[in-house]
């Protein structure tokens, strides 16, 4: 599953890091607490959040995330955008509420991986 497939299917608005859209998405993580995201998210995750402050760029970049989706029409702050463009971190924006966006992303990633063996 490539980031651009998710962008297209969910009609996400890409505001930075266009060069990273070819990256593979390995999983997802949802959270607005930065320390939680630092500790528990993984490389290649698509991070879904409502945080718009510039610190999200450092977190995504340090954790090697595939990108960040800002939900519910949250727009990145100006310095967030600057930093994300400089560091090539893809930020995508959607008006969808978090619940809906997360569900759709989950379905895309989960179907790609095949049925969950635990169910």
């Amino acid at each position: 599953m490539h980031l651009e497939d998710i962008v297209k299917a969910l009609k996400l608005r890409v505001v930075s890091g266009e060069d990273g859209l070819a990256a593979e998405v390995l999983g997802g993580y949802v959270g607005d607490l930065l320390s939680d995201v630092m500790a528990n998210s993984k490389e290649g995750d698509l991070w879904i959040t409502r945080q718009t402050h510039q610190n999200i760029v450092a977190v995504a970049s340090l954790k090697d995330h595939a990108g960040i989706i800002l939900v519910q029409g949250c727009n990145p702050a100006a310095d967030t955008l600057d930093k994300a463009r400089k560091e090539g971190v893809p930020i995508m924006v959607t008006d969808m509420p978090g619940f809906e966006a997360i569900g759709k992303v989950y379905n895309m990633i989960a179907t790609k991986k095949g049925p969950d063996p635990s169910t």
Partner: peptide, 16 residues
């Protein structure tokens, strides 16, 4: 408001 203050930082440092 910026997403800090979960009280997890020092625990994370210790764990990692």
């Amino acid at each position: 408001e910026m997403g800090f203050g979960a009280g997890m930082g020092l625990c994370n440092i210790k764990n990692f």
